[in-house]
Write a protein that binds this DNA or RNA. Structure first.
Lengths: 119, 119
DNA sequence: TCCTTAGATTGACATTGGTCGATGTATTGC
DNA sequence: GCAATACATCGACCAATGTCAATCTAAGGA
């Protein structure tokens, strides 16, 4: 019989008296990086409003002119925010004629919400 | 019978030909600001790991030494991240003796997740 | 072909944000 | 009271980010 059998492993493995042992493993750094990247894309008032405006449309689709109408931001700035959202996978773009139409990627928001509440 | 009865109102109310009408109102700027502020507090790998480490503990409580052990960050940096999380309402602090213990604010993550999936 | 329009890209700028070393402040133990 | 420990705060620095004016590209229309 060894010491590790007599004493709980958690008491041996840590030296700090202040702490209680963890019940499960914490999120990996890679997982945290990925989630933070998604959250960063959402963590901007203009981008949240863009998502809201897009999803408020009948066919879940809005053109850039809808956004420049409602947001008090320049057209390049809105285009920049749209690019961030596309690269993060929250909206997708389709071009018809002169106009670009943006739509929500189904489930993308719910996925982040699910991960968040599962932490 | 007037024109507004013949033609759909939505066709009259907007001048842009590229756009479909919205089915509901978009999020208010104030609401977007508030949600963005909460998301900003979460949108950092170190802070996500802090939340994960705290919630992985038996009593949903961890001291700073638990965090300095697991995160490869300086103690002032960790203290800074903790302050951000406290001010955003995701964790709370209680001091017992020399040690500060941080714990998750129940429901705070779920609340953000709920708002997110309701956009 | 040329002009106009829609929207993307570029470059520059100011602001914010993450990080650390140094220091400050309680609390504990001697 | 004094030294040591745990943690917070401060100040500085560099990187990342939001914003806009200017420019570029592509699609239509005359």
């Amino acid at each position: 019989m060894t010491f590790t059998q007599i004493l709980p492993l958690t008491d041996i493995s840590r030296a700090d008296a202040c702490s209680t042992p963890p019940t499960r493993a914490a999120t990996s750094p890679e997982h945290a990086d990925a989630l933070a990247h998604s959250l960063k894309a959402l963590a901007d008032p203009a981008r949240l409003r863009i998502i809201s405006i897009v999803s408020a449309h009948a066919n879940q689709e809005a053109c850039v002119c809808d956004l420049t109408d409602q947001l008090t931001l320049s057209q390049p700035t809105i285009s920049h925010h749209l690019k961030v959202l596309v690269e993060a996978g929250f909206v997708s773009r389709v071009k018809r004629g002169t106009w670009s139409y943006y739509s929500l990627v189904p489930g993308s928001l719910g996925s982040v919400a699910g991960v968040l509440s599962a932490i």
